[in-house]
Design a protein around this nucleic acid. Sequence first.
DNA 1: CAGCATCCAGTCCGATACTG
DNA 2: CAGTATCGGACTGGATGCTG
Lengths: 142, 142
Amino acid sequence: MKEPVITPALRQAMQAVMVQVEGRVDSSKCPIRDVMDHIGDKWSSLLMVALGTRPHRFGELKRAVPDISQRMLTQTLRDLQRDGLVSRHVFPTQPPSVEYRLTPLGESMMPPLMGLMKWAADHHAQIREARSDFAEAQAELA
Amino acid sequence: MKEPVITPALRQAMQAVMVQVEGRVDSSKCPIRDVMDHIGDKWSSLLMVALGTRPHRFGELKRAVPDISQRMLTQTLRDLQRDGLVSRHVFPTQPPSVEYRLTPLGESMMPPLMGLMKWAADHHAQIREARSDFAEAQAELA
DNA sequence: CAGCATCCAGTCCGATACTG
DNA sequence: CAGTATCGGACTGGATGCTG
């Protein structure tokens, strides 16, 4: 006996999302897309997780996410700050130091975000396998 | 009395993610980024939700997500199929009809994905407010 | 240390036209 | 109906050099 993965409540939630999507020609008017577009960019979610563990200074973040460029780090942090997910604190030391940390709003995002990341980690092997199967199937056609 | 949002277990999970990120100069070697990059693209998550409610045919999907172009619908579906999240079934009718549905792997992704979407819907107002506050603060500096 | 300004390559993605 | 093919613009994001 297996429980269905898609429960009635879950299906209802998905239908509610699709109602939001329909007719919102302007994507900025759709809450889902407005938020998901940001989560989707290359670095946001990674920086959120880094800051979720503890506050970081600019240089610490750069080391925590080794292959982010300075430009993208600056820009992504500004976007996160703009959306109220991250706060920026300047300490008047010499040389200056700046600390970034999650706001309460940002913290509230971590449980669902980590839920998705856990899924990613748990199913990564299956996805890789599916990809190689797919590549094989394609090769057979040739 | 408020429970902390970031529980010790959650913090530990985040630290585990960051360990995965560090040192993986090649992003395809990092499970988190490999999966998140796909979720992040403009249409994947939306199509997953649409298919989560029930199987859809190509044209139905196009109507369910009104402003996706045919090109992006085709391409995104192929990517989802490649990753084993969606399966494609051709019925030899005339004219041909093709049905897309979630695979079990795809279904397993829906609970965490919907968790994040629920967060987005619940906090969209707060984010919009943060943005207008930020814009005001910027305007004041000028 | 913590950024900003500039330049440039690659990619994303929409519009359009065409096919089995 | 369910795609494929091609073009071109917009945007993303990396590299580099400079500033307080």
